[in-house]
Design a protein around this nucleic acid. Structure first.
Length: 94
DNA sequence: AAGCTGACTCGCT
DNA sequence: GAGCGAGCCAGCT
């Protein structure tokens, strides 16, 4: 576990149910310009946080995890349509 | 220290 | 929209 990873996990863990954040948003919140680095953290420690609340800039969930993420998001009441989250509605302001 | 990889993003076609 | 290329940076050889 690295300091960077801990900051990322803190942010993701703070996202309320039914709301989402893009990788870019998380990166910005932890003071980084590397959304991909955020992805690496979730790949390793995603099971410790609500990883499904982090989506691509398009609103689609992480590639390879779309079905599971969409299911969880719908259960939380997020507005999902055509395989992607409605960012205008569900994006969390922080 | 240099290089590679990846749960990304953005601009162009 | 969808497909492509370039830029991004943390972590691990």
């Amino acid at each position: 576990m690295t300091p960077f990873a801990r900051r990322v996990l803190d942010v993701v863990d703070a996202i309320p149910p039914g709301r989402v954040l893009t990788y870019g948003d998380v990166a910005e919140l932890v003071g980084s310009a590397a959304p991909r680095a955020v992805g690496m953290v979730l790949a390793r420690h995603g099971d410790e946080v609500p990883w499904h609340r982090v989506v691509l800039a398009s609103g689609a969930p992480a590639p390879g995890h779309a079905p599971r993420a969409l299911l969880l998001l719908r259960e939380e009441g997020a507005h999902v349509r055509a395989g992607r989250v409605d960012l205008d509605r569900a994006r969390w302001d922080g």
